[in-house]
Design a protein around this nucleic acid. Structure first.
Length: 421
RNA sequence: GUGGGCGUAGCUCAGUCGGUUAGAGCACGAGGUUGUGGUCCUCGGGGUCGGGGGUUCGAGUCCCCUCGCUCACCCCA
């Protein structure tokens, strides 16, 4: 085959569309119920926006961006949605007029990573951002919404894990403490952790090697380093979750990878999936708007990947093929020379509020009926020379085999009656 | 980036020790008397065996290279 979809990007074929529509529908319904409005920023932003927001030394910026140059402009396909929404928020002047904005978007993101199960180079996310407020109830609502999305799709057993990263001052003190803690035990650590010690010491806390897990039990906990204000915020988030009836656990091992996160961070996991258990990630980014040149307003958001969600649904047997609504009427031409009349008849049915198609190959009547049958069309209209001469047509109900002769002018009404509409 | 597995018809796959014209099921098309589906029967179209090179009288089969897919790891939004 000469051309194929580029690595890590795939076609969502018609058969899969009903399932995708279901995910999109649940996402929109949930977001709107919580007062969020849809926003659709461009898929492409200035490269500098991502460097500034996501962080210069992150993997995303270092090696995973799809970038292009057009004239003097350096552009990049969005690797995540937060940066673009934050930019749109500022560009629309929301920070000056109406700081509190509950926004969401659903659409494709791009990362130039090697694809594996559940991870693609173009992937769709349900992304929710609540900008302009530090109220901890919003943190809890975001977490609750994310978990509710999975539940709405019939997925049980999602775990909510929350943590706080502080807001820079206390996080820095924590980092130093971890570094000091790990420095004394490098010999006992796995090779990976020794390299993490240099690159990003906080990742050591996330290590899965048994020996390291044991060592980490005595590691400093960020929560202990929080300032009074940040501690109070974290406690309020947790009590708000209780008020929502949402179970959660504090996981001091969560260390999200992007530079802009502050205070509350959280992940939703499906534990049975092991290494691919992370289904959702999010958190506060209380200084991103300022860093992008706007007012210093706090914000929180999360993103859920559809790819992982769909895999989960498939493995749980929840992705049953939803039969798309069939085309109502298949128009059969019984005889030659009726091409134009069949076309007009199909159009008349459409004008009458029905969906209709006909055979474009001028095949045998038998073939046309076979096509009508395999297409699942409930009704067939048969037009032959005799009917055409009389201004009538046969209307057959494929569900029970009954057939009647109907004046062409009344076809649409009669067909609607048979379909109960 | 590292390692494993896999590339034969639209799909799922078979193809022995290297041996004639590469097969099956499903799907698709045409028929099975007049203009009517589902089941059944008959027939048919469709493959540069991922690509290139090599070994050989002979390669889908063996060797090398390459491309792609996939899984795990690394990393992670």
């Amino acid at each position: 085959m000469q051309y194929q979809a580029v690595r890590g990007m795939r076609d969502v074929l018609p058969a899969e569309i009903p399932l995708w529509e279901r995910l999109e529908h649940e996402a929109r319904r949930l977001a709107r119920a919580h007062g969020f409005r849809e926003i659709r920023p461009p898929l492409v932003e200035e490269t500098a926006l991502f460097i500034r927001s996501v962080g210069e030394v992150t993997d995303i910026v270092e090696k995973e961006m799809f970038s292009m140059q057009k004239g003097d402009a350096h552009l990049t396909l969005r690797p995540e949605a937060t940066a673009g929404i934050a930019r749109a928020y500022l560009e629309a002047g929301f920070d000056k007029n109406a700081p509190l904005q509950r926004l969401f978007t659903i659409g494709p993101m791009f990362r130039g990573e090697r694809p594996t199960k559940g991870r693609e180079r173009q992937f769709t996310q349900f992304d929710v951002e609540c900008l302009g407020s530090l109220d901890p109830r919003l943190d809890a609502e975001c977490i609750h919404m994310a978990a509710s999305f999975f539940e709405a799709l019939g997925i049980e057993g999602i775990e909510v894990r929350v943590n706080s990263m502080g807001d820079g001052e206390d996080r820095e003190r924590f980092r130093e403490a971890v570094k000091a803690f790990v420095a004394g035990q490098l010999a006992e650590r796995c090779e990976l952790c020794r390299s993490r010690f240099e690159r990003n010491v906080l990742r050591v806390l996330d290590c899965k090697t048994p020996a390291c897990v044991e060592l980490n039990k005595k590691a400093p906990v960020l929560v202990d380093f929080l300032t009074d204000a940040n501690r109070a915020h974290f406690d309020a988030v947790r009590s708000s979750l209780v008020a929502l009836g949402r179970k959660s656990e504090v996981d001091t091992g969560i260390v999200r990878g992007l530079d802009y996160y502050t205070r509350t961070i959280f992940e939703l996991h499906y534990p049975r999936f092991g290494a691919r258990s992370a289904m959702c990630g999010g958190g506060r980014y209380d200084h991103l708007l300022r860093d992008l040149g706007g007012s210093d307003l706090p914000a929180i958001g999360f993103a859920i990947g559809f790819t992982g969600t769909l895999i989960l649904m498939q493995e749980l047997g929840l992705a049953k093929a939803v039969a798309p609504a069939p085309i109502d009427v298949y128009v059969v031409a019984a005889g030659g020379g009726l091409e134009a009349r069949v076309l007009a008849l199909a159009q008349a049915l459409r004008a009458g509020g029905l969906s209709a198609i006909y055979d474009v190959e001028s095949r045998s009547v038998k073939s046309q009926f076979k096509a009508a049958n395999s297409g699942g069309h409930p009704l067939v209209v048969v037009l032959g020379d005799a009917e055409q001469a009389a201004g009538t047509a046969q209307l057959k109900d494929m569900r029970n085999g009954t057939q009647e002769l109907v004046p062409q002018a009344e076809l649409a009404a009669r067909a609607r009656a048979l379909l109960g509409r």
